[in-house]
Design a protein around this nucleic acid. Sequence first.
DNA 1: CATGTCATGTAATCCGTTACATGATTAC
DNA 2: GTAATCATGTAACGGATTACATGACATG
Lengths: 182, 182
Amino acid sequence: MSLRHGLLGLLVDGPASGYDLLKIFEQSLAFVWPATQSQLYGELNRLADDGLVVVSDEGQRRRKEYTITPAGRADLEHWLTDIEPNRIRRNDAMLRVFFLGTLEPVQAKAYLEREAAVHEAFEQLLIDQARDTNWEAGTFNRYGRLVIESGIRYAHTQGEWARWAAGEIDELGPPTKRSGAS
Amino acid sequence: MSLRHGLLGLLVDGPASGYDLLKIFEQSLAFVWPATQSQLYGELNRLADDGLVVVSDEGQRRRKEYTITPAGRADLEHWLTDIEPNRIRRNDAMLRVFFLGTLEPVQAKAYLEREAAVHEAFEQLLIDQARDTNWEAGTFNRYGRLVIESGIRYAHTQGEWARWAAGEIDELGPPTKRSGAS
DNA sequence: CATGTCATGTAATCCGTTACATGATTAC
DNA sequence: GTAATCATGTAACGGATTACATGACATG
């Protein structure tokens, strides 16, 4: 139900169309909660069915403008204060690390160095974005700054970790092959 | 396709049943890639259909022991070296931070302090687990140590971030309510 | 009048979760 | 003999991804 509440949260800042919300999603929420166009339009219709938003205006080009209702605001607040966040954090890149021992050490090391490079680049991207954003405008952006700071710290430690881990490979030595050889 | 390759990776360490693999998943891979019993048994059958594993033995109590095939090993290696990891990291807890401005500052602060506490507790849990594990046994565990170290660093920085963010709330001031009030 | 952008929707498929169902063996 | 553990499977449902489809308006 996170997409649903993501949309409600954006609508607190004012009425918007699905198209508007999609653009905002892509620029801001996408790194913590990506959503496709399909999913977003579907969810808006369901929110309207449930009375958490209303179509407050129909503009040109079939545009439907949605406004959050009091019920929607209540639901958002309930979500924020009473529902435990889902702590499940799937991490494809980290899953692979478990199995690096099945590769030659050179390749395992290459994998970790690539990870380091990716995180370092991403950190720089976030730093640039933080610098170029006007943090004054709107509640939403003010808290967005906290989120981007978390992203920067995350990318930084992951980069550091990957560099350290790449160094550890030499000490771990060659793979032990069970079942097949031995 | 991560569950699939997680299973293949575990089977490199030797033949195992679905039941065995489920236990290993729960203890080790679960924090980076949780899987349910249902999903796991289903995927093993699909792996067998695709010739990446074979049923090498049928034991008591309907137990089926799976062994990875050369094709399975090749597929695992291909995944590890040629396929870019999926970088999408959905984060329910962080999504909420975008919308903390819709709450009273006291509540926003409470949310972040709770986050800090959760991460600090989790960090301690991982530190204890790292201390109590025998890191000598098997390739798998040796790389598992790198993963757990990453978890410790992640939990640590997230905890630090949440404490810092809680402190920032005072400076961000009261929420600006658009659409409804104003 | 053709192309681009604004704007919304549907359908197929995949992955993951929850719940249910059942059988075989061991330990008390 | 009954409870616990080992062991595997199915069915229903929901969320996410991809692809496809279409319409309306603006610009050159």
